[in-house]
Write a protein that binds this DNA or RNA. Structure first.
Length: 271
DNA sequence: ATGCCCTAGCTCCTAGGA
């Protein structure tokens, strides 16, 4: 079973690259973020030709998350209980059951700057996510996948450690590295979730994002802000994980690279 | 080489990204 996550920065603009990547990488389940595409305009026919079913959740111009699956897609849940808004709830979370796994695709609020109301929103969003995941991990909502091996995949907009940014000094007064944001990640790990750290493929750091500006990708000045947080049964079955930095190359890429995770779940008998 | 910002829309500027 191959699970992937990718902030595509517009599914419509990225569609040719997405289709090529799906055909070449052959993931069973794909979490997408920043689809920036109204649900009715999602290219379901195009990805359908490659065997994928789609669950999407969008605001239109901003945000937007989706899950593509070729191994079944059921019990789709949009957002989560207690999800805060800015001021209205935004399209930043969707979850579904795929071949016996509970998969979440999340796009955590950016925060903008530590003194911005958006930063307070970001921390509140994390706290509500933690509470919702606690319920699901406890098996409290079996009708929507409670108790199944689970992975929360997506753009968390936090670099877990200083090694996850190309130059910590540059981010001294910035979001993505503050103690409060890192504590929010730690609170997720305290639920029993494991940070599935991917292989970088090049260089020592498994960065997943590089700014479009100033040749940052070419200098490998990136950040690791796209994460896979897996429950114990899921994490224990992970065979390999890597950052597909090839997808960040060439003309017209997203500013994020996909993460690909191979997991020995579910048992082949269940497929 | 991977090569020096991008996206969507109330579109010819603006807001948001991180």
């Amino acid at each position: 079973m191959r699970v992937a996550t990718w902030n595509v920065n517009s599914v419509k603009t990225r569609l040719p690259r997405l289709l090529d990547w799906l055909a070449g990488t052959a993931p069973d389940v794909v979490c997408l973020q920043e689809t920036k595409c109204p649900d009715g305009a999602f290219p379901v026919a195009e990805v359908g030709e490659l065997g994928y079913t789609v669950a999407s959740h969008s605001d239109g111009r901003w945000n937007g998350v989706a899950i593509l699956s070729r191994v079944g897609l059921s019990d789709v849940t949009v957002g989560f209980p207690g999800q805060p808004g800015f001021p209205e709830p935004e399209a930043r979370a969707i979850s579904a059951t795929c071949a016996g796994l509970r998969i979440w695709s999340v796009y955590v609020p950016n925060g903008r700057s530590p003194d911005d109301p958006h930063y307070t929103y970001k921390l509140a969003w994390f706290a509500a996510l933690r509470d919702a995941l606690a319920v699901e991990l406890a098996g409290g909502q079996p009708a929507t996948g409670g108790g199944l091996p689970l992975a929360v995949c997506g753009d968390f907009n936090v670099a877990p450690t200083d090694a996850d940014v190309w130059d910590p000094a540059v981010f001294t007064y910035s979001t993505h590295v503050t103690p409060a944001e890192r504590a929010a990640l730690a609170a997720l790990r305290d639920l029993g979730l494991t940070d599935v750290v991917p292989t970088p493929m090049k260089g020592p750091h498994p960065f997943t994002y590089w700014d479009y500006r100033a040749g940052m990708f070419h200098q490998n000045k990136g950040m690791r802000i796209d994460l896979v947080y897996a429950s114990a049964p899921f994490a224990g079955a992970v065979r390999a994980a890597y950052v597909d930095r090839e997808a960040r190359k060439g003309k017209g890429p997203s500013d994020h690279a996909p993460i690909v995770v191979d997991v020995d779940l579910p048992p082949t008998a269940a497929e």
